[in-house]
């Protein structure tokens, strides 16, 4: 297997090793040109400076990089930027701000649903989608629904409480 360097050929019928993609990130229109092998997490962190989306593994297992793609939770490490043409991406920075927290963010703080904070943005984004998708949530559904996110600090006990608390608020 030989290494191949990046190049910035222009778009042609033969496809292109660089892509220009139009998407919305946190409600702002973004047009970015990047190498075709750029993943969404790299775009967010390195080109857009949105460092709240974290990278915790390289096998699409840990969920630290979870963002919303057209409103649904996805792992940004497993999406090419090229696949995001026309997409609306929401990251933790777009969910709520310090003076206007999303109920899920508030509940994580209130219930001590985080410790080191590294898995937290992905966990919150996954949890928001979970609440949107499930009409009713109990402890078991929450635990199952967060299967795609690993936390090493909390033992999940307080994360589960936080999601249940936020779900009530989000539905009111």
């Amino acid at each position: 297997m030989s290494a191949k360097s990046m190049s910035t050929e222009s778009m042609s019928a033969k496809g292109s090793s660089s892509v220009t993609v139009n998407l919305k990130v946190n409600n702002k229109a973004v047009t970015e040109t990047c190498a075709a092998n750029t993943t969404l997490d790299e775009l967010l962190r390195e080109q857009l400076g949105l460092s709240g989306t974290h990278i915790g593994c390289d096998t699409s297992q840990c969920g630290s990089c979870t963002v919303h793609f057209d409103g649904r939770a996805v792992k940004a490490c497993t999406l090419l930027v090229a696949q995001c043409e026309g997409a609306e991406i929401t990251t933790i920075e777009g969910l709520g701000t310090a003076d206007n927290l999303h109920p899920m963010q508030a509940a994580f703080r209130e219930c001590h649903g985080l410790q080191c904070g590294f898995c937290t943005p992905g966990m919150i984004m996954a949890a928001v989608d979970l609440v949107h998708q499930e009409e009713t949530l109990d402890e078991q559904k929450i635990r199952k629904g967060l299967e795609g996110n690993i936390c090493r600090c909390t033992g999940y006990h307080n994360i589960v409480r936080a999601v249940a608390t936020a779900a009530k608020k989000m539905r009111n």
Binding site: T91, A98, F108, R109, L114, T120
Partner: peptide, 21 residues
């Protein structure tokens, strides 16, 4: 008393500052 954590606001809003950031 179970005071809410001062550090949390930055973590839950994606404003933590880890080495790779």
């Amino acid at each position: 008393k179970s005071v809410q954590r001062k550090e949390d606001l930055r973590f839950i809003t994606g404003k933590g500052r880890y080495t790779d950031d």
